[in-house]
Each structure stands twice: as C-alpha cells, then as structure tokens.
Design a protein around this nucleic acid. Structure first.
Lengths: 342, 342
DNA sequence: GTGAAAGCGCTAACAC
DNA sequence: GTGTTAGCGCTTTCAC
C-alpha cells in the first residue's frame, strides 16, 4: 500500500503533476474541468500533500515552535493557548515542546524545531528568564538560518531577538498602590528565585516604592522561599505567623505561592483578610478556587500572545533588539481589605 | 546569506556529501579524521540538518502529534506532559495542537500533522469522547498513509485505532466503595455532559452499584449541570441545599465541578465534610488547593502516557481494534468523612 | 491553460 | 572507508 503522491493523481486524472500542484496551492490558472477531476481523486484517496517535500521548495512551514519549561504550569499553558489563537488567525500552527527546565532538552528542542524549519521559535521560561544571562545562553539562542526568527517571552538583551516581557515593575506598582489605597503601611513579600528577572524586578520595585513612600522595608517581612510550590508559601506564612510584629499585608510572587500563604495562615488561625491581606500576581485560574478568592494582578494574556506571534511571524517579524512591555491589571477579590478590620 | 547544506560542508571539508550524511546519522564507517573535520564545520556554521529533506527519504520523523481540545485544561496538559516524558525516553518529540473543541480546527490540525508526516497522532477529547460516535468522526479519523498510526485517548470503537481509556467504571466503584466504607447510604452525583462516554459510564455504574447494594438512586440527587465550570458545581450545590432531604455524600464528575460544589455548600452554610461529604474524579493539581482538601479518584497518568506513546510508536504500535484500560486510585483527603458527624 | 524539467537537501544503495 | 548517483514528493520557472 504505497503512499499516494501527486504523480499518482496526475496519472489517473490524465494531467501533469504540475497541474495537480497548481490545484493544491490554489493557483487560478487551471481549467475548472481538470480542477474538478483532481479534487475528486484527492477525496477518493484521502490525499494529503507531503509537507516535507513541499517544505523543501517553499521556505515557510507556516509553523511556529514554542519551548516551555513545564506544560502543566498554568502560566505557560495560558500563554501557549493565546499564541495558538493568534497563530491560527494568521494561518499558522503552533508546535509546543516541553523542556522540563532541562538545558539539554531545551537545546535539543531548539534544534528539533530548527530542523523542522519552523518559521519562528518562541522561547518561554527557563534560562531566558534569568536576570543575568550568560554568553552560553546567548550562543544557544542563536540560529544560523536567517529565515527563522526567535522571540523571547521575557526581557531580551540579545540584539538578534525581540523580547515580549511582562511589565513586572508596573505590576508591582499596581499591587502596592492597591494596598496603600486600602490603608496598609506595613507590607511583606513572599517570593522565590531572585535569579529570575521577574522576581528581581518586583523586589527592586517594591523597595523603591516603599522607600519613596517612606514606608518600612523590613528584612524579616521579605520571605524568600526555596520553592515555587504550595509548600513554599505555607512555610512563608508560618514564618510570618511566628513574628512578634507582622505586616498588615503580604504580596506573593504568584498565585500558587499565595495559595500556600492562605493555607499557612489558616493553619496558624490568622484570618485573611481580617488579620492580614494577601495579594499576588498572575491571576491564574486558581485565583477563584481559593478561599478567600484571591486579589491578584493579572496580565493581558491576549496581548501577550498577539505580540509574541506578531514578532514571530507578523508585521514586526524580524524587528530585533527590542522589548515590548505587557501591562498588568489589578483584579480585586476577597483576600484584601482595610487593615485592622478583624 | 544562503542556508548551509551538507554540500557546503562537504566541499569545505574536502569530502563527499555522503560522508557528511554518514556523520550526521551516526554511521560508524567514517574515519576519525574526517569526522573531526566535519564536526568542526558543523560547529562553525551552527549547521542543523533539514528535517524536511531528511523526512523525504526516511519515512519516520520521530515525532508524535497530539490533538487536545483545550491546552489550558489541567487534565489534558497533564496527559500531554506524561506523553512528552515517555516520548522523550523513546527518542521521539511530541507536537501539540490545540483544537479548541472545534471540529473544523480538529480536522485541520489532523491534516496538518499528517502533512508533517508524524509517526502517529494521539487524539484527546472532543468528538472521540462521545459515547455515540458518528460515521463522520470515523471518517475523519481515518488516515490514508498506513505508516501513520492513530491512537485515541478514550474508548475506541474503530477497527483501525487503539483506545487508551480511563476505567471510568472502576473509578466509580472506588468512589462509592469509599463512601460506603465511611457509612454513607445516600449518595448524590453532580455531573455534566452525558453525551460523553466518561460521564455516561460513571452514571450507569453508579446506578448499577446502588441498585446492587439496595441503596436509593434518587433523581433529585442526580444533578446535571449545563457546564463543567465552577459555576456548574455551585449551582448544583445550591439545588442540593434547597432539598428537604439531602444525600449525605455527593460525588462530582471532576475536581472543578467539586470546587464549585464546595463553594456552593459554603455559601449555603453547609459544612463539608461535617454535614455532607464530597468526592470527585481526576485528582488534579487543584485538589490540594481547595478548602477542605478534596478526596478524589486519580488516574495513573504515567501509565496513561506510557500506553498512549507505546501504542503510537512503541511495542504495541499498529495493534488496532483494542482498548487498554487505565485504572484509577483513590486519594483520601479532607472532604469526606463519616455521615452525621457534625 | 498546461506540461517538461530542474531543483530543494538529504539518505541509501551501489560501486570502488 | 569513501564517493557517485538515484531518488524522496513537491513547487516553480520556462516553454509552448
């Protein structure tokens, strides 16, 4: 059962392979009669043209590759989904590869996508989120084929890529301003991974803001967790609970950490938001599942996806050495309130 | 800046293209000297072989396509992640396409993968989960190329595919047995989508079990939601709360619905598990985020991924017309307890 | 409008 | 060991 090719179709239809090809690519210069005949045969044999062969002559595969460290993480699969939508609208497909935060798999994945001759690759998370990027990362991100674009879903320092980056500073502003407006003056921060640019920027910005406002930035209120998981937030809450003088509000780096913080406070019999307010970042799907529902600074994921795909294959494709900032939006729910309300 | 090919490398290294190809494919019949020289040039030019060209001669692309209705859904991205791991272990890559539960996009995605000459495609969710599969679905799943396998992540009635299917009946047994062991005799069910095989089987099995045990199967305790989202579960809880005679335990079709049920009961001042126990299926990552933590019947995702990939490209590749059942496992947490404890 | 023919970049016989 | 050569299945000039 040999695979059917345009030659088979051509022979059976009594036309040349070129004519079949013209029909496949939608060229107009084909008589309606032959078009009908060939269409029938395509139907008959469930013929699907071989993208490999096509890709050999046509430079574009109309496919965008995306590398994510963890496909289970709601942040990454949200970004991916919005990219899918945008790509689809432009007639492209997204191909997702999971790197499991492993440098070897990241490089292999990158190579695999290049081999596949994707039109662009979007790199999310992992080493590109590092505040200090090494020469090694820079080398690994370089693609010899000039037709393949690479865009980084973070801040890019590379002259040969574009960066689409959450505006972490503005997001932190939103969080602090919200707490300030409620009357909070003593603010803590629960975070992890200062090696990552998002954490670093947020922490820096928090310090700047508090300093500018003349509010205290106390080291014992700045809790660095050793994991991004639920347990990290739980431990952080326990440490805060043990303090003789606690802040009246705490900002968590993301919703998962915040979930842990809520859990930890509940175990310590500390009421949220009565005794202490909790706010976080990401506004992921878990925010509404928690008790109390989480106040969170979300990102404009739709815009994020649009920009990522746009710089990959759209109007801005090829514009390198630039960074586009994606703004955050505050979503107020139940976990924040005025201090001293309990 | 022309793209570099093996011909360029061959010329510069003073060898034949075939020798370069041999080095690329790892053939042993190459002198160490030439191998070194070519390796250097590959390094120098960041050369990556063109998978299109390779794919034209070699039948396998060592890629598995996977079609999911919603990449944001924790169930699907968990399945995907485990498939990735298994595929990676076998030297394959996974290519994920998001269909957004849209038949047109599902078919386009399918075609795209076939064009790409993936070695197999795994179809998750959407129409393949339907209890009654139409001829149309069957036609759409058929691939002319005999080298491409299709495996369905659900129950398959098709002679030309394999089905890897959660053992929904056994899962329901686990849930009911757990509630029985705690002493529950009055059990409700919150579900959605009876057109889907998972819901249908679970509902059928629940009825069978209750009948066999001589327990009541009461229509007003069987709550069909019009959505799988949080709101569905919330509404269901409200309806249960309004009943003069409530069951002592309710089984939810999945964790999200259960989250809604918990929310609804809290709003109705009904204590879980004090007044009523709640158990669900999937044991997804949200189970531990909820208050109380959710007792849930989980699936063996690792085995699921293994089987999916195995039937796609492993030892069982090509075994069609069979179904493999993936067993569930009960994970007891805080949302279930003995009845009448409050 | 249509066909012949030359690639696209690689691999796999087949010679040597 | 190594080179030569014939495809793989398509698209795309270039003639007609």
């Amino acid at each position: 059962m040999k695979n059917v090719t345009i030659y088979d179709l051509a022979k059976e239809a009594g036309v040349s392979p070129a004519t079949v090809s013209r029909i496949l690519t939608g060229s107009t210069n084909v008589s309606e009669e032959k078009r009908q005949k060939v269409r029938q045969l395509i139907e008959k044999y469930d013929f699907v043209p071989n993208a490999m062969a096509r890709g050999l002559t046509v430079s574009s595969s109309r496919t965008i590759g995306i590398l994510v460290p963890d496909a289970m993480n709601p942040y990454y699969n949200t970004v991916f989904s919005y990219c899918c939508n945008e790509a689809y609208a432009r007639g492209y497909s997204m191909m997702l590869l999971n790197t499991f935060s492993d440098t070897v798999r990241e490089n292999e994945g990158f190579a695999k996508l290049i081999e596949q001759r994707v039109d662009a690759v979007i790199v999310c998370g992992g080493r590109v989120d590092l505040a200090e990027m090494s020469r090694e990362v820079e080398e690994d991100m370089k693609v010899s084929d000039p037709r393949c674009r690479v865009v980084i879903a973070s801040y890019s320092e590379f002259p040969f890529t574009a960066g689409i980056c959450i505006d972490h500073r503005q997001c932190m502003d939103l969080a602090v301003d919200h707490l300030m407006a409620l009357g909070h003056r003593e603010i803590g921060f629960v975070f992890a991974g200062t090696q990552y640019i998002g954490t670093k920027w947020k922490l820096e910005r928090l310090r700047e803001k508090l300093d500018a406002l003349g509010l205290p930035f106390r080291d014992e209120w700045m809790i660095e967790c050793d994991t991004y998981r639920l347990g990290g937030g739980k431990d952080a809450a326990a440490r805060l609970a043990a303090l003789s003088h606690r802040p009246t509000a705490v900002i968590a780096l993301n919703d998962v950490l915040a979930a842990g913080v809520l859990r930890g406070f509940r175990e310590a019999q500390i009421n949220v938001p009565g005794d202490i307010s909790v706010i976080s970042f990401d506004n992921s799907s878990i925010a509404t599942l928690l008790t109390p529902e989480l106040t969170s600074v979300g990102y404009d994921y739709e815009l994020f996806g649009k920009m990522l795909v746009d710089y990959a294959v759209g109007e801005h494709a090829g514009e390198n050495g630039v960074n586009v900032m994606i703004p955050g939006t505050l979503v107020v729910r139940e976990s924040t309130a005025c201090p001293g309300r309990s």
